[in-house]
């Protein structure tokens, strides 16, 4: 670097020129006044303007390759296809749990059997905590558990052996 002495005021002015876009109206006015009287700063400003002008001119002289845009379109289409395929694959994975078909069918049958069995068990052995369902008949309230007991007692007496609840309701009806 050359041995250059620049006055402090000029240094500030030159900083302002470099960061020109940030100057207030008053600073800008002061800068213009200074440039009228200071050839060094004027030269600095002209150099800055010269560089910017030539760089801008250089930009407009560019001719971007035509093939690039075509390749970008292809890439974008690929990415879009890939994204859709990924979404579909995820959904399939979510549904199939990556299981084989026969395994999946076996699992479905086991679940159906379990639910059916649970239902049967509940019918044969109703939970003790279950509250009896009440219904209205001829303005008098009858509790189903009581009715079941009465019906079962009558049926067992008639058959001469114990009877399950399913058989009880399929073969006998409670009438008032």
């Amino acid at each position: 670097m050359n041995n250059v002495k620049t006055p402090k005021a000029c240094l500030q002015i030159q900083k302002d020129i470099v960061l020109g876009a940030y100057l207030s109206y008053s600073t800008n006015k002061a800068l213009k006044e200074h440039l009228k009287t200071c050839p060094a700063c004027r030269a600095f400003a002209e150099l800055q303007a010269n560089i910017k002008d030539r760089l801008t001119a250089e930009q407009s002289a560019q001719s971007p390759p035509e093939r690039t845009l075509k390749q970008l379109h292809l890439h974008l289409a690929d990415r879009l296809q890939e994204r859709n395929a990924t979404a579909w694959r995820r959904l399939r994975q979510l549904l199939a749990f990556r299981m084989r078909f026969d395994h999946a069918m076996a699992a479905v049958i086991v679940v159906i059997c379990f639910v059916w069995g649970l239902g049967r068990l509940h019918t044969i052995y109703p939970p003790k905590s279950a509250k009896p369902i009440k219904y209205h008949a001829d303005q008098s309230v009858i509790e189903t558990a009581q009715a079941t007991l009465l019906l079962r007692a009558a049926a067992e007496q008639k058959l001469g052996r114990p009877i399950s609840e399913d058989s009880l309701y399929s073969r006998f009806t409670f009438t008032m």
């Binding site: 030159q14 050839p39 600095f44 150099l47």
Partner: peptide
């Protein structure tokens, strides 16, 4: 960024004197 930009432009101004001779030269 500000200080480096100023430094760069200052160096350019000094080194490209042949395009704009500086009257501040000692």
């Amino acid at each position: 960024v500000k200080s480096r930009l100023f430094y760069i432009n200052k160096i350019l101004a000094d080194r490209l004197e042949s395009f704009h001779p500086s009257p501040h030269k000692a």
